[in-house]
């Protein structure tokens, strides 16, 4: 099981050193502008820029490949409908949709591949997202890993006792029971985590240990990135 938010080791690049607040703001604005693009030319120009960014972040090939495969799986039904349906401009619509989806996905993947989750959450908090939401995000990410490990252990235990997934009632019953065990243990763990937090004086308020700082280069990168995509969007609008 893979999630977009699962992080491979983060390479030390200019993107990973970029203040996450400015980086997320720049990528957020860029994503918004990309969704406004209409022509294939403008989308292709944006794609070139995003590919250059992706190369510079040096993401783990397998990490990116798996997530791209998930995106392709998600897009497949839309592509089939547009390409083989009775819509006359279907192939061009399919191309535009695919390019937009790939661009949005790729921009998100770059942020995930260059920013540790806790820094991204802290940046989101600084950008006005309620702290409760960002902390829930971090803790969900943290315990998703624990629960996935537990699910894998349950799977191993089932296999070592001769269980194989088959299209049979008994097999689905077993999978249902295993899922129930996972959910119950998740609830139990949530209670223990809450108790452990209370024992360490938690009263509902999270306090920051590290305070972020902004350099001139962080702002400059933000300006350059938004300007480039803004220029492509303006060109696209004027050309139309």
């Amino acid at each position: 099981m893979t999630f977009l938010t699962d992080q491979a080791s983060i390479q030390p690049t200019w993107l990973s050193r970029w203040d996450p607040r400015w980086k997320i703001a720049a990528f957020g604005l860029t994503t918004f502008l990309v969704t406004l693009l209409r022509s294939e030319t403008a989308l292709a120009a944006a794609a070139v820029a995003v590919i250059a960014l992706t190369v510079s972040v040096r993401p783990d090939g397998r990490w990116l490949g798996r997530r791209s495969a998930s995106l392709a799986f998600f897009l497949a039904p839309f592509m089939v409908y547009l390409l083989f349906g009775s819509i006359s401009s279907g192939p061009w619509q399919a191309l535009r949709l695919a390019l937009r989806a790939i661009l949005v996905f790729q921009l998100a993947a770059i942020v995930v591949a260059s920013t540790p989750m806790h820094r991204a959450a802290r940046a989101l908090s600084s950008l006005g997202v309620p702290r409760l939401v960002t902390k829930l995000l971090v803790m969900t990410h943290r315990y998703t890993v624990v629960l996935r490990d537990q699910w894998q252990r349950i799977g191993t235990a089932l296999h070592t006792r001769g269980f194989q997934v088959r299209a049979s009632r008994r097999s689905w019953q077993t999978m249902g029971m295993a899922s129930a065990v996972l959910l119950l243990s998740a609830e139990d763990r949530a209670k223990r985590v809450a108790a452990a937090m209370r024992c360490r004086g938690f009263d509902g308020q999270f306090h920051d240990y590290h305070r972020p700082s902004t350099r001139a280069s962080d702002v400059a990168r933000f300006v350059v990135m938004v300007s480039v995509v803004g220029a492509i969007t303006a060109f696209d609008r004027i050309a139309q």
Partner: peptide, 21 residues
């Protein structure tokens, strides 16, 4: 189980959790 107790994304921040509270 220490996994119940370690909730922060770095060791340093986790150690600071109690004193900050």
């Amino acid at each position: 189980n220490s996994d119940d107790q370690l909730i922060h994304p770095t060791v340093e921040e986790d150690v600071a959790f109690g004193p900050l509270n």
